[in-house]
């Protein structure tokens, strides 16, 4: 990402943090993912990942990072499309300050 975009991203991030919207978004995503059993699936993936490892390799400081790195691509693909779209819409509307268009708000 170029510096201008990075600056905008930082500003947007800061705005979400300050208004508490980021926590709100996180809670929303969390609840949607719980509804769709996403977390169970990710937990299964983690278990499969751990099964191939010995305990010593899990004791290193970077074990969790390695695990996240390993499962992140698959886990991102596991997020249901409608959940991702809802989140993206909400984030966009919160950054721009406009409410999300009513016709695309699900449920």
């Amino acid at each position: 990402m170029d510096p201008v975009n990075e600056e905008v991203r930082a500003k947007a991030h800061q705005k979400l943090e300050e208004t508490g919207k980021r926590d709100e978004l996180k809670r929303l995503l969390q609840s949607r993912l719980v509804e769709s059993q996403f977390q169970e699936k990710v937990a299964e993936m983690c278990k499969d990942y751990i099964k191939g490892k010995d305990l010593d390799s899990l004791s290193t400081d970077s074990a969790v990072d390695a695990m996240v790195k390993n499962i992140a691509p698959d886990a991102r693909a596991l997020v249901p499309d409608e959940v991702r779209k809802e989140l993206v819409r909400n984030i966009a509307s919160m950054i721009s300050g406009n409410p999300p268009p009513p016709d695309v708000v699900p449920k």
Partner: peptide, 10 residues
């Protein structure tokens, strides 16, 4: 931003 939030949950 979406990926950031998702990563946090992961």
């Amino acid at each position: 931003i979406y990926n950031d939030i998702l990563d946090e949950i992961l």
